[in-house]
């Protein structure tokens, strides 16, 4: 059976929700080991990874330098594990989070092999589908024989696996010469709210330029809280400073697949739509009946958001 090494994305405390989705892809390819690179106190992500169905082993790679997600520090260790751990791996996967996108190409270059970005479907052991041109085109790519397959996995394309697993957690060594030319200074800003996580929430309410201001965005938050949803935004809303960048949905923001996506005051540019096309149900509220978002929306409501949203809240209250 093929051997798959999956690189965990975590913040030292919690495992990124994308990992459970990446495992769903990985277990189609072989026997899955999850590598958790962490500093001396990062045992929680290892425990979380061990619970995921389909994971057969967790490799805990502990090192003082692994406390921060620096690609230049992690890539040589990952390359070492990938090439040498118990004879090496056939696949090295990472989620297509900003962490995975940052680190995996660096590993690929060290190994001298190409990388498949945003793997969305497994056709066979070496053939995969992936989106290009902001998701307007899907291509099939094949990794040539004789080299390991490196891929970032488009997490919105896979359903998360369950948590009934009990994989052993074993300490692993990945000695490599580590550079000192890169230093992590810390998170400058984080959306860090009590709201559900945008990438895993079953419901998302998003606002665009039509919302008009940072203050007005409160009505988006209010609706989200009313239905227990995460909050997203278009690039225009982020650029205008209504909300922080980690809320951006789309080609260069987050790619999400909630059961319900409510787009408010968002026109539906290609770059935005690519981030939501796997949503179960899309609702659009926009005052321009010809806005492109309506073409993709399951339910469109034409009108002014400032009158419709208060009405919607009332209707929700009435419906209970």
């Amino acid at each position: 059976m093929s051997r798959v090494l999956l690189i965990a994305d975590h913040d030292g405390k919690t495992l990124n929700t994308g990992i459970a989705r990446t495992v769903a892809c990985a277990r189609q390819l072989g026997n899955v080991h999850v590598a958790v690179f962490h500093a001396p106190d990062g045992d929680a992500p290892c425990a979380a990874a061990a619970k995921l169905d389909g994971v057969s082993r967790v490799l805990s790679v502990r090192h003082e330098a692994n406390g921060a997600p620096l690609a230049a520090v992690l890539a040589p260790q990952i390359a070492r594990l990938a090439a040498e751990h118990e004879g090496g791996y056939d696949y090295v996967l990472a989620p297509s989070t900003t962490f995975g996108k940052d680190v995996l190409p660096r590993v690929a270059a060290l190994l001298g092999v190409p990388q498949v970005s945003d793997l969305m479907e497994v056709i066979d052991a070496r053939t995969f589908k992936r989106p290009i041109y902001a998701g307007n085109v899907i291509t099939t790519v094949k990794v040539p024989e004789g080299i390991p397959v490196l891929a970032t996995v488009r997490i919105a394309s896979f359903q998360a696996v369950g948590e009934a697993g009990e994989a052993p957690i074993v300490a692993a060594q990945a000695e490599a010469e580590l550079p000192t030319h890169s230093r992590y200074l810390g998170l400058a800003e984080s959306g860090g709210s009590d709201r559900p996580d945008l990438q895993s929430a079953p419901r998302v309410v998003a606002g665009g330029r039509g919302v008009g201001s940072k203050e007005n965005f409160e009505i988006i938050f209010k609706l989200a809280d009313r239905i227990g949803a995460a909050v997203g935004a278009s690039r225009a809303a982020v650029d205008a400073g209504y909300v922080p960048n980690d809320m951006q949905v789309g080609q260069t923001g987050k790619i999400i697949a909630p059961d319900l996506y409510i787009a408010i005051g968002i026109s539906g540019a290609i770059q935005h739509m690519t981030g939501i096309k796997d949503a179960g149900c899309i609702v659009a509220i926009n005052k321009d009946g010809d806005a492109p978002i309506f073409e993709a929306a399951d339910f469109g409501l034409v009108g002014d958001l400032f009158t419709l949203l208060p009405e919607l809240e009332k209707a929700l209250d009435a419906a209970g």
Partner: peptide, 23 residues
Amino acid sequence: PQLEVGAHEPPPKRQGGTKVESV
């Protein structure tokens, strides 16, 4: 080594376009 690039296809189309009249 290079990826062998095969078929190109449009993405599956979403069935959208329905409008509702009221909240």
